[in-house]
């Protein structure tokens, strides 16, 4: 039953409807590699004490850009229906909630 039928072979998954994304994958890979190189140099460029906020914002932005590329292209979120994306975003909702709680805590401590 599970053996392939050679007279009527099952269609390939793409069936000609899905295009190959190999070119996109290679472009994303090269971009990720480049962003990683940039990341490694950021701490040494912004090592001074007064530069710490810039360093933090820059590194966080680079990391989020890389995460977005992996999620959108390697994990195919770009090609999925929105419901999959909503599920995938669950940690982000929790992250925003956690940040709000922390900001509230900071605000209370500053006011005390």
């Amino acid at each position: 039953m599970s053996a392939p039928d050679h007279n009527h072979p099952a269609p390939a998954a793409d069936d000609g409807h899905e295009e190959s994304h190999v070119g996109t994958y290679v472009t994303v890979f090269l971009t990720l590699g480049f962003l990683t190189i940039v990341e490694v140099f950021v701490p040494s460029v912004y090592s001074a004490e007064w530069n710490q906020t810039t360093k933090m914002l820059l590194l966080s932005g680079l990391a989020l850009a890389k995460v977005g590329l992996v999620g959108m292209f390697f994990m195919h979120l770009k090609y999925e229906k929105k419901w999959i994306a909503w599920i995938a975003m669950m940690p982000v909702y929790m992250g925003v909630f956690a940040i709000l709680l922390m900001l509230e805590s900071v605000y209370r401590n500053v006011g005390a």
């Binding site: 390939a12 998954a13 793409d14 899905e18 190959s20 994304h21 190999v22 994958y25 290679v26 890979f29 990720l32 590699g33 990683t36 992996v70 390697f74």
Partner: peptide
Amino acid sequence: ICSSLSMVMAVEGAKKR
């Protein structure tokens, strides 16, 4: 990152039988 690229290539290979 390299292994992620090789993984998408593996999935492409499987899709193309």
